[in-house]
Amino acid sequence: MKNKFLALTLTVVTGLATVSFTNIKDNKKQVDVSKSKITWKGYKVTGSHEGTISLKEGYLIFDENKLTGGEFIADMTTISSTDLEGEWKDKLDGHLKAEDFFGIENHPVTKLVFTNVKSTGKNSYQVTADLTIKKTTKPVTFNLSVYGSKATASLKIDRTEYGLKYGSGSFFDNLGDKTIYDEFDLVVDLQF
């Protein structure tokens, strides 16, 4: 009986020591794509348009409670304007999906892969990531905040760096009030 008690005690102590000195790393948290959202806003001389894009999949990686990485895939077939209705909405949505913009037939997804994450304060990070749009990959840097099971980020993207030059005053002359600005905004709200 004494030997069984000693063996049980050694097993428990060994187990606790192992857990105490084991560093749990790379806790991958899948994003709930049904509750997460990407909002876009594009600007032109005469105003702006805005809309949404759905996430296809994504995750954030944490080392204990500190953000260390992440990767996301957006479903570009879902790009949609939310500030228009009827015929005008259909025209804009169709144009955004056409080859001179996102070309969803050949490029149905975009991808964002974190390459560097730097803590800038409690729950705040500066993230550098590779953004791939239409097979072109460029680095982007943005701020991301994490609160509990939610994260938010705002990005400013120069579309012309990814070959989206339609209506750009940087590439075409005499566009007048039909000029579309090169940069557009993304606001990402994640739940995991």
Rank of each mutant, 00 (worst) to 15 (best):
G69P: 12
A151H: 03
G58F: 08
S119N: 08
S124A: 13
T78S: 09
T137L: 11
W88Y: 15
K89I: 06
N123C: 06
P139F: 05
T132P: 10
E105L: 12
T77G: 00
G103E: 03
V146W: 07
Y59R: 01
E105T: 12
K138P: 05
D93Y: 01
V146D: 14
T77N: 08
G69Q: 14
I133F: 10
G69H: 14
I79N: 07
Y59N: 06
K89A: 08
N65R: 06
Q126T: 14
T128F: 04
K135V: 11
L60P: 11
T128M: 11
K118H: 06
K138H: 11
W40S: 05
G69V: 07
K138R: 13
V117M: 08
V127F: 02
P108D: 06
K66V: 12
T136S: 04
G86T: 10
E64Q: 12
P139T: 11
S119E: 12
D63I: 09
G47A: 06
F72D: 04
F72N: 05
T110I: 07
K111P: 00
S48G: 05
N106W: 00
N106Q: 10
K134Y: 05
K91Q: 08
K135G: 10
Y43V: 09
D100L: 04
K91T: 09
D75Y: 00
V45S: 03
F114G: 02
E64L: 10
L67R: 02
S124D: 15
G69E: 09
S80N: 12
N123F: 09
F142I: 04
L96W: 02
S145K: 12
G103N: 04
T137Q: 15
K91E: 14
A74N: 06
N106R: 06
L112T: 14
E71T: 09
D63Q: 12
I104N: 05
T152D: 15
G51T: 00
W40H: 03
W88Q: 13
T68P: 02
A129V: 10
D63K: 15
T77L: 06
T77H: 03
F142W: 09
T136G: 05
S81R: 15
T77V: 03
T110W: 07
S149L: 10
F142N: 02
T132S: 01
E85F: 01
G121R: 13
T132E: 06
I73F: 03
A98R: 02
K44W: 03
K150E: 05
G94K: 06
G86D: 12
G69F: 08
K41D: 04
F142H: 07
H95A: 08
S80I: 02
I61D: 11
T120Y: 15
N123H: 08
E99A: 12
G51S: 04
T110N: 05
K118R: 11
S80W: 03
D75I: 00
F142C: 01
G58D: 09
K44P: 01
L84P: 13
G121M: 07
G42Y: 11
V109T: 15
K66F: 08
